[in-house]
Nucleic acid binder design. Structure first.
Lengths: 221, 221
DNA sequence: CTTAAAAAGCGTGTTTTTTCCCTGTGGAAA
DNA sequence: TTTCCACAGGGAAAAAACACGCTTTTTAAG
């Protein structure tokens, strides 16, 4: 069991202050957990980090100004790999899930989770080292979960930078011709990238792609 | 000033337990406010209402199972119009804003608001009777805000049931032909409805429409 | 009630965009 | 070598977007 004298120190990084301060008081109500850091974004958090008072777990939102969840997870992985990272996002993280895993992220939780799930996730990360919600779907996560193929299929399942950029640019009124221009590619190549995404994401049309992209917070505002 | 002996009673209706219990403790930290009801959806809330202990303000999420925010606002407007309703949604509410206003809703707030905004919104509703965040955009809200035309333009700005249904059905891989079949309309009529929505929502393509629909939580999961 | 105006619905047709074939090259990796 | 894959091409069918016009229904006004 955890030591009651020195509670687990949790950091919260999220620009949605309403939700953040709310989650903070929820975590403080958990036995043996205590929120010791609160920040509006990655930069703010990184700058406030004090050696000797490092948190045990950092709860990160993905979409933040200045320094987002991806960047913060990378930085933590490089500088303080002993700190566990739990992603708490508004969106699914399927599309960039493998990227985040490579950055050492220990778990994922969506903001519409139950309070008990958050507590369970925190405990699971401490005890087993990881927590993966089973509320995800889609080809990618299934590939990952069923462990079909080691590293080769993971590369297949993972979206390339190009594919991500294409997805992002697709979330607009732009035609493929315009997207091709922006990406310095031939329209035919765009065809190939699109078809590849149709397969990877189980979509049948651009509208389908855009919906998946938005559910994953890929779109730019 | 508000009476400190009898605090303002607030009800919270939201199926995102994590966020809800979090917001509850936040509101309880506000001076002269107290959360007296918590429910996972409209039905649960309505059934738990006890005469003599009615809340002063109900904070409603829009997307809930069993009985959603629209339905709950309607019911409250019909049965307990003395209770003020504040919509606290994950999404923009532009598309159905006027509908909600007609149901007597007193204010709107998005979940990514600052904590201080929530407090301000609650106080504003008590003192002035309403609170409208200025973080909304789009043709509809601007029409409403600038007061261009009294009731005629409001009808124009408001989306019809048909338009809403079309928007919802557009969020899929369906072709317009299939949507026309589902709505018992000719494909040409679908053209008209689409073009009308292009105008009302400042969109230029179906992808644009779908993005607006998703930002407003119109899509079915 | 009558009439004008507005809107909703539907038709024909055209242009643009999207989607889907199948093919081929050049480079990197097995 | 052989295999894979990013990239690119031609061609064609389907879907989306746009134009114009013609009824019927609804609404508003006199």
């Amino acid at each position: 069991m955890t030591n009651e004298v020195t509670p687990i120190k949790v950091a919260l990084v999220d620009d949605h202050v309403l939700v953040r301060s709310a989650i903070a008081s929820l975590i403080n109500s958990f036995e043996s957990f205590k929120v010791t850091y609160e920040a509006n974004n990655g930069r703010e958090f990184v700058e406030s980090l004090t050696v000797g008072q490092l948190p045990d777990i950092v709860i990160l939102d993905l979409n933040m100004p200045e320094m987002n969840g991806h960047q913060t997870a990378s930085w933590l992985n490089d500088n303080y790999s002993e700190i566990s990272v739990l992603i708490l996002s508004e969106y699914d993280s399927e599309l960039t899930l493998i990227r985040l895993l490579q950055k050492g992220v220990k778990g994922f939780l969506k903001k519409d989770a139950q309070a008990s799930e958050l507590k369970f996730a925190l405990q699971a990360i401490l005890q087993t080292g990881y927590f993966y919600s089973n509320h995800t779907n889609g080809k990618i996560v299934n590939l990952f979960r069923t462990g079909q193929g080691g590293s080769v299929n993971l590369q297949k399942a993972m979206l390339s930078d190009q594919e991500l950029q294409f997805l992002q640019l697709s979330c607009s009124d732009r035609t493929y011709k315009e997207i091709a221009l922006l990406m310095n590619l031939n329209v035919r190549t765009i065809d190939t990238i699109r078809d590849q995404l149709f397969f990877k994401l189980d979509a049948k049309s651009r509208v389908g792609l855009v919906m998946i992209a938005m559910k994953n917070g890929i779109h730019t505002y």
